[in-house]
């Protein structure tokens, strides 16, 4: 099949961007979307032009590095699928595709379709962990965890940090990403001691990073390649509200000895 692509090209963070039109010829239905772009790039290189920069790594839908808006949909038309796992059989001959980077103030364009998602790392730094050092924890089976809880935690933990939730949200909100981590750790017994503190800190960081708020449009859940439920946002809100209501000033007293 042959396709027409309009790809966002931007030389750098501070450069002006524009759409460029390219033709993708003889595209096989078995190609992944990124393989189609590879072929376009080979053509550009052969003509001495700069190839389209896009982030990608594992190409099996788990590293979370790839992602672009394809005709106004994050990761393209196939549900529960990253861009690298989207195959060209989802398109038909003659289709015209508009390809744009994730757009959010917190996700600055680095080049072309590559954006900076370091805000996500900083949200995790704010509290997305269990504060245990490597050492001698108790036996792994010492605390039984019901299968239901473990499964729910896994549903939340499946987040790959690709940013599609932010990209698809009309408000540019990172609530689904933050909620997934707050919920993954907040569900498990190991995450309980820091549960409310974590919610407080991660939400504060999320706000600091200039993401928008959550209006529960539901677009994030639909865009999420791992199908993470917006119910986790309700859970985060619950933990946050409880954290606000019960928080105490942190003091150093009584800690060291």
């Amino acid at each position: 099949m042959n396709l027409i692509l309009h790809v966002w090209r931007q030389a750098g963070a501070n450069a002006a961007g524009r759409f460029e039109r390219y033709e993708a010829r003889d595209v096989s239905a078995d190609m992944s979307f990124l393989e189609m772009l590879d072929v376009v790039n080979e053509g550009l290189i052969a003509n001495g032009q700069e190839p389209i920069a896009f982030d990608h790594d594992c190409r099996e839908g788990i590293c979370g590095m790839c992602g672009m808006m394809i005709n106004g949909t994050a990761h393209g038309p196939m549900k529960m699928t990253t861009t690298c796992q989207l195959h060209m059989r989802s398109f038909k001959d003659g289709d015209e595709l508009w390809i744009e980077p994730w757009r959010a103030r917190a996700f600055q364009v680095v080049k072309d379709l590559v954006v900076d998602r370091s805000a996500f790392d900083r949200i995790i730094q704010a509290g997305g962990f269990v504060s245990v050092n490597t050492g001698a924890p108790q036996d792994a089976n010492a605390i039984p965890i019901s299968k239901q809880v473990a499964d729910d935690a896994m549903d939340a933990a499946a987040c790959i940090g690709c940013g599609a939730c932010v990209a698809a949200c009309p408000n540019g909100s990172a609530s689904l990403f933050t909620a997934a981590k707050v919920s993954h750790l907040g569900l498990l017994p190991q995450g309980q001691p820091e549960r409310y503190r974590r919610a407080l800190k991660m939400v504060a960081q999320m706000d600091l990073e200039d993401f928008g708020h959550c209006t529960l449009f539901g677009e994030c859940q639909e865009a999420c390649p791992k199908g993470i439920s917006i119910d986790f946002i309700a859970r985060m809100n619950h933990d946050y509200l409880r954290a606000v209501a019960t928080q105490r000033e942190e003091t150093a007293a009584g800690g060291t000895g």
Binding site: P137, Q138, A140, N141, H184
Partner: peptide
């Protein structure tokens, strides 16, 4: 043996049986 203990303590959601064990 220690790795599994460490990972569970960090909150890695390993698959579990109905009885709650790994």
């Amino acid at each position: 043996v220690q790795i599994i203990d460490q990972c569970v303590a960090q909150g890695v959601p390993f698959a579990r049986e109905y009885g709650g064990l790994l």
